[in-house]
C-alpha cells in the first residue's frame, strides 16, 4: 500500500524561508515541538536527531531530500525509551509553497505500518506541532510546555486551589 497515511496542511503568514528556519533550527523547534531541539546538517544522507531536555535522542532519521526552502524529507523513527522504537522507519515530507499571504505548508507522513504504535503516536501529534509552529511564526508566542506540570495537572495537585 503506497498511499500516504497522514496529510496535514496549514497557511502561515510568513515567507517559506522563515518556515524553513522554523523547521530546521533548534532555537525554534524547542519552542513549539514538544520542547525538543532538532540537530542535522540537512544534507541528503545526513542524520537528523531530535533531542529532549535531557539531551536524549527521542527521534532519529536520515535526510532524504533537502531542497531549501521548498522541500524537506527525512525518515522518522522514535528511539530510546519509546515503545515505538521497534517500529520500522517511516517518512515525513514537508512541502513549502510561497503564496500571497505567506507559505502553504503541507506535511505528509507515510510509509507507516498499519496500526503501528508510531502511527498512533504521530496521528494527533502533528496537528499540535504545526499549530504551534504557525502561532510561533505569526505571533512570536512559544508553546508553554511547563504549565500542565506546574499547576494544572489534576493528578498531582489537590483541587483545593481550583
Amino acid at each position: 500500500m503506497s498511499k500516504p497515511e497522514f496529510v496535514y496542511m496549514t497557511l502561515i503568514a510568513a515567507p517559506p524561508e522563515q518556515v524553513w528556519k522554523g523547521l530546521t533550527t533548534a532555537e525554534f523547534t524547542r519552542q513549539y515541538w514538544h520542547n525538543t531541539r532538532v540537530r542535522s546538517d540537512f544534507k541528503p544522507g545526513c542524520k537528523i536527531e531530535f533531542l529532549n531536555e535531557d539531551d536524549n535522542i527521542v527521534v532519529l532519521g536520515e535526510i532524504l531530500r533537502a531542497d531549501h526552502p521548498n522541500e524537506l524529507a527525512y525518515t522518522w523513527q522514535f528511539t530510546g525509551d519509546s515503545a515505538a522504537a521497534d517500529d520500522p522507519p517511516s517518512r515525513v515530507t514537508f512541502t513549502l509553497e510561497e503564496i500571497k499571504v505567506g507559505t502553504r505548508l503541507t506535511i505528509v507522513h507515510d510509509q507507516l505500518e498499519e496500526g503501528s504504535l508510531t502511527a498512533t503516536m504521530i496521528s494527533g501529534g502533528w496537528a499540535h506541532v504545526i499549530a504551534g509552529l504557525k502561532t510561533l511564526l505569526e505571533t512570536g508566542e512559544a508553546v508553554d510546555f511547563t504549565a500542565p506540570e506546574e499547576s494544572d495537572c489534576p493528578g498531582r495537585q489537590s483541587v483545593a486551589n481550583g
Partner: peptide, 10 residues
C-alpha cells in the same frame, strides 16, 4: 486535516 482544530484547541 486536523490543524485548524488544533488551532481552536490552542
Amino acid at each position: 486535516n486536523p490543524v485548524p482544530i488544533a488551532e481552536i484547541n490552542r
